[in-house]
Design a protein around this nucleic acid. Structure first.
Lengths: 155, 155
DNA sequence: CTACATGCAAATCCTTTGCATCCAC
DNA sequence: GTGGATGCAAAGGATTTGCATGTAG
């Protein structure tokens, strides 16, 4: 979906289109990846827009409520925000090394269908993180935190 | 898994078994559901154990690192902690009314398998929340936040 | 005994909020 | 003109941390 198209939709819903809102949206459209609020804010400032970070939080919240972007916890401390555009994608996050990789949305289709059919629940699975251990860390430190294994220290 | 069995495992890993640790574990074993750190702490105090909440956070962290419990964000503000015991279960959380319902782990088996096979990634899907709109809210306020629909206000 | 766990209190840090001002419509 | 959006600054609240003390092994 193009910028002006989204803008028009939001305007049609009765919202006011301000410069902070327009530019925030533009940044997310161009990003092609997820960004923290802080990162979005930094880019806004870099573009010469003297906007407050609280406003950026409010704008992101608003875009989320309007189904334009998704909010995700990737274990980075701060949540990330990303455009909901097709094709959807999700992430694998390694609990050991922190590496984040991308996975296809197709894996989630079965679970979406079953949740709809069996529970009559409409799932919003737009940008997810699956935590676990990546291939590399599996070979490096086999099942270090597996229950039943023998670890060594509290940290 | 029984209390003493878990204790023995942890002791074998070289950890010290203190009263706060033993009783925290006991509370989680008896709970048969998820609890926030605050709730765990309250129960510890109610049992007459004058433990600090910071210690409770540390204990929960430790149990998590040792694969005994899972930590989940159910959208309640604070994360919840629950024993990893079979059969696993997960939750549907309604974004409208907040209702939380339980779903079977079997829905997740396909995605676990595919993540393992296709990405050689070992997923830790122990206690998840799927956010979305429950059946009741769907009929009450059809697709209020669907992209493409016409909502009304910022709040 | 000695290192690890705890108590206490303060700090962190993401996120939200109150209120006066401003501006999109 | 008017109500919604923003700036500013401060609060909020879950979680973490530093350090002295206590205690499990």
């Amino acid at each position: 979906m193009a910028l002006e198209e989204i803008i028009a939709t939001l305007r049609a819903r009765g919202y006011r289109i301000t410069l902070p809102r327009r530019q925030t949206l533009q940044i997310l459209l161009r990003a092609h990846s997820h960004l923290t609020c802080e990162q979005v804010h930094q880019r806004l400032v870099a573009q010469g827009l003297d906007v407050d970070e609280a406003t950026t939080y409010r704008t992101l919240q608003w875009l989320k409520e309007n189904g334009i972007i998704a909010q995700t916890d990737l274990g980075l401390g701060a949540d990330v925000y990303s455009l909901i555009d097709s094709p959807l994608h999700h992430h694998l996050v390694c609990l050991r090394c922190g590496r984040i990789s991308e996975i296809s949305d197709s894996l989630f289709e079965p679970i979406r269908r079953q949740v709809r059919e069996r529970y009559h629940f409409e799932p919003r699975i737009e940008h997810w993180a699956i935590f676990g251990i990546c291939a590399e860390c599996q070979s490096n430190e086999k099942g270090k935190i597996e229950p039943g294994n023998h670890g060594e220290s509290g940290e």
